[in-house]
Structures are given as C-alpha cells and as structure tokens.
Design a protein around this nucleic acid. Structure first.
Lengths: 184, 184
DNA sequence: GTCTATAGCGGGATAGAC
DNA sequence: GTCTATCCCGCTATAGAC
C-alpha cells in the first residue's frame, strides 16, 4: 500500500478516536514511520488532510452503497446498522459525529464538505426508506424525511454514548428498535 | 458576578461551540479581560477547568430538574426538549455530546466524571418515563431503558446535525416525534 | 520521496513582584 | 487577585540537502 493511502487510513483512525483537534501531523507521521515534514509532501496542510479524509469517507460510503444496490431495503438498513456496530466495537465513533462536534473549530471549506457528506448520507436513507415502502416491508405512512433524520441523529449520538459507556449492547438494541419501527 | 463564575460561563460557551480541544486558557482569559496566568489562580490546569465545567453542568441540570419536580411527565419531557432547542438556537451542542466526541483525547478523571454526568441524565429520563406510565399518559408497555437510550442518543446527535445544517426545524420535529412515540 | 533543520506561533504552566 | 516574565513543549509549515 502506498504511503498516501496508509496516511489516509491512519488519519481516519485518529480522527475517529481522538477528534480532528486531538491528533497532529506528528501522530500520523510517527505511525507511518516517516518524519512529519515528509507528510507535507502528500498533504500541504492539516486542513488538506481533513478535506481528503472527508472525500475518502464519501468514496467508501458510495462504494458500500453500490455493492448493496441489489438488496432489499430491510437488508440495507440492517447492514447499515451492522457497519456502525463494527465502528463502535473498534472504540470509534462515526466520522460525521466527530466532525459535527469539532464543527465550530474547523475551516469553512471543511464545514461545507462535511455538510455535503452529511446530506449525501441522508439522501441515501430517504431513498432506502422509499424503497422499503414500495416493497411493502416498511409502513406505508412512514414520514421519510423525519425518519431519516431520526435514524441519522440516533446512530450518531448512539455511537458516542456507547463509547463512553464502554459497551455496545445498548447501541445494538437501538439499531433493532429503529428497524422495528420502520416495519409495516 | 465574580471572576470564577464568569470564567465558568465563558468556559461553557467555548466548550459547547468549539469543543474541549478547540479553546485555550488564552481564549477564556481574553474574553475575561485578564491574563491567562491569572486564570491559573482559579483553575490549576485546563483539566481542572474541564472537571469544574462538568460539575457545573451537573449542578445546573439538577437545579433544572428540582424546579420541575411538580410537573407531569409529559410536561417534563416537553420542557427538556425545549431546553435543548434553546441550546441549538445558540449554535451550541449539548455538553455531553461535545465531550463524547472529544472522549478519546481527554484524561481518565474527566472520562469518569463525564460518564457519571451522562448516567445521571439517563437516570432522570428513566424516572420520568416511569412517572408518565404511572400517570397513564405514556404507553404502559414502554421499554424505559431502551427508550431513555434512544432519546438521549437522538437529542445528542440531533443537536449536532442541526448545527451543521444551520437550522433547528428538523430538531424540533425530532423532539415532537420522540414525545409522540411515548404517548398511550 | 524522504530527510534535517529551523522558523514562528500558541499552548499549558510556574515563579515571583505588586 | 492580577500582573510580568519566562519556560518548555508541541504544533503547523517551509527551505533546502540527499
């Protein structure tokens, strides 16, 4: 794996465990086994790295979604929860949640990109809920916008809560409840 | 108002807008109009300030709850949502959420105190839900633990989402949905 | 592409005068 | 209680050698 890719992987790790203000170029460089000056060869600035990280998240998420396009809405939702369970099991929180919390201390371009990422995720949720209604597995009268907002907020908050509690049981239960509430 | 109290108020403000790693003693001292060295007279270290801030939150929240002890469970829940709407309208997020996100880069004593604060809020929710069941305004078969977890997570996440979106409408809707789901 | 070296700043924290 | 002065550290970032 090339250095840039490894740097991005490490960046993701530190971002999701320590927050954007909680790690430095030094942290990443040390883990890479190179000098922090060398890291500037790949990323002109820390903001640059931050922007690249959000782009990475967007790409991974898009890939993830494409691979699951053939699934039923119910299966999609279950795998979505499963994905966040894995993140939580790794003592991480979701990228959207980290950057939301650091939102006030981040540059305008990053704010903009973060909003874009966030709205992309919401759009996927809305589409999937509509799919489930068509498939008649989800309630016909499901308010899709509001439900998508509730799911997004509770997953984000739920992962944060799970991390401070040091257990994932409550998050798994939350996931089950969310999906149960969709059903016809 | 004495300097220590003013410092705590400012600390709360910066914590909830910038995150714990997003502000410094300098930030607070500047806003106070004193030198940062003088701030060390009140708080030996930044961690000390952090601990004091969590204690402040615990106290305010306890006061808030005591003043509302005579209310019905439904009124309590409505006022709780209202409190968070005010926080969001001020471009802030909830203290629990901030510190949850910064959790990985914070000292062990702060982690412990944060967990304590968090569990205290959950305990209040559980008590209030039970009250509502007794009052027959909330569903008899409401799973109190799980519901408390869902409310806590979605409020926390919802405020963060509202801030990046720059609007509180979705949060208000979320609040209404949460309360509606409790009702008999 | 990676290095050494260094600039320049801001952070947390302390000593000691007033 | 608040100040000045200072320390040491870690951060971002750049210049220039290899």
């Amino acid at each position: 794996m090339d250095t840039r890719t490894r740097a991005l992987d490490l960046g993701r790790h530190y971002l999701q465990t320590l927050g954007f203000n909680g790690f430095s170029f030094q942290t990443v460089a040390d883990a890479l086994g190179i000098r922090k000056a060398s890291l500037h060869y790949y990323f002109a600035s820390k903001e640059d790295l931050g922007m690249a990280l959000i782009e990475e998240y967007q790409k991974s998420y898009a890939d993830w979604a494409v691979k699951r396009e053939h699934l039923s809405a119910e299966e999609k939702m279950e795998q979505l929860i499963q994905m966040f369970v894995k993140i939580g099991a790794d003592h991480k929180i979701c990228p959207g949640g980290v950057l939301c919390a650091d939102f006030g201390s981040v540059s305008n371009p990053m704010k903009k990109k973060l909003l874009q990422f966030h709205l992309g995720q919401k759009a996927w949720l809305v589409r999937t809920l509509k799919q489930g209604i068509q498939e008649k597995t989800f309630r016909k009268n499901l308010p899709v916008e509001e439900t998508a907002d509730l799911i997004q907020a509770s997953i984000q908050g739920g992962l944060q809560v799970a991390r401070i509690r040091g257990e994932m049981k409550s998050f798994k239960t939350l996931g089950k409840t969310l999906i149960q509430n969709l059903k016809a």
